[in-house]
Design a protein around this nucleic acid. Structure first.
Lengths: 124, 124, 124, 124
DNA sequence: GTGGTCTAGACCACG
DNA sequence: GTGGTCTAGACCACG
């Protein structure tokens, strides 16, 4: 299920993007699965359908989902997402965030354990 | 030195924030160093001084710099930044970015090496 | 044989149009050949027969096929297609696409070779 | 100048996309040039600003233009467009269109001359 | 003044 | 019923 945090400074469509992407990354949504329709999600969150459209189009541009005329949106595969991904930007973000954590005194072990967890979980 | 990329989708004050923070994380600016004055930086980048003020206020809120009335802005220490840091948000960003890299097929070794590099560099 | 790509952003009837036209251009279907009946193709693709009808009507308008009451649809000749073709629109599309390829750095030789290939293949 | 053709079956935002792209391909707009603001173009065409936004965002995704917060949209360079281009799709379109022209009886010389013209013009 | 986000709601094509 | 397009208009951040 998807919920919004109105205290979050990010825009609504960004939050929806991240939530749906998270469900895909976690494997809660698998390749070929249909995701909630634009209207369904809009009414369930009581926001405007156009805002959902914007989030879904963003995810479509990133290769995470695709639309089928008159049917709905479906989860695309890893290959599709990898093809459209901007690895440069992702690594920049990763490096900046990890550098900041390091500077602020985070132990390397803490981060290494997080990395281990992520790669272990994903292989399931 | 700081330069701007007008094609960057981030706002100017955000870019300045990130650039100054990066100089601090890299050790190019050390605790107690005076950073460029608002006027200096504004004229060197030919942008509005208010934009610099906004960036510096942001970094001050994050504990990375502090102002001395009539003297300018100075680099604060790690403890100051660590006290004001939102570790929850930083770890969320790190986890989300690394999860995405993992999903997209990045080898764990690549990331582990990046972590090693960052922690090694920083200890200097 | 005709297959559909549900990830294709084009509508189903457009995909069918393009696939059948391609078979004709390639010579896999020749003048006078009977093409698959609406019912046959609909059940083989498990889609609504009306969608096939729409595609066939479109190809009929373009002069690529013609229907014989109670017999089915047949491939028309080049003259028929040439008579109904909108050369202006085709040249506009060709010019726009080639201009974009040129702008993006494609070598002229690459395109000239493609043109050679197409005209050589077609003369068979 | 940009004008709309309401008889054109393409959507308004697509027409705007193509018109602006054409100006860039022709060299009427060069790298770094500011293009008409969203509001300016919307009022000059008497259409809704959101429709312009949609067209501009599409061109931004294709790397042809970029936005600067509070300043407007500017023409990006060839490299930017080439980086984001889907050459596979462009060549597919080119091949399909040229194959159709060939089938319909167009002389190879006519096409070769068009190719020559495009590559000659662009080098200016 | 500029682009960015969002609402409210209409009408369309597709199947 | 689904997504796609478009209008009309509001309010925001940025500089």
């Amino acid at each position: 299920m998807i919920s919004l945090d109105f205290r979050d400074s990010r825009s609504i469509y960004e939050q929806i993007c991240d939530k749906v992407k998270k469900l895909i990354l976690e494997g809660a949504l698998s390749e070929g699965d249909k995701i909630m329709s634009v209207r369904e999600l809009a009414s369930s969150l009581t926001i405007n359908p156009n805002t959902i459209v914007k989030a879904y189009k963003q995810l479509e541009n990133e290769g995470y989902i695709y639309s089928v005329q008159g049917k709905g949106y479906f989860v695309a595969g890893r290959k599709s997402a990898a093809k459209d991904a901007d690895f440069g930007a992702l690594f920049d973000t990763a490096r900046a965030t990890l550098s900041e954590l390091c500077f602020l005194g985070t132990e390397k072990d803490t981060v290494t354990r997080m990395v281990d967890d992520i790669w272990k979980e994903m292989k399931r």
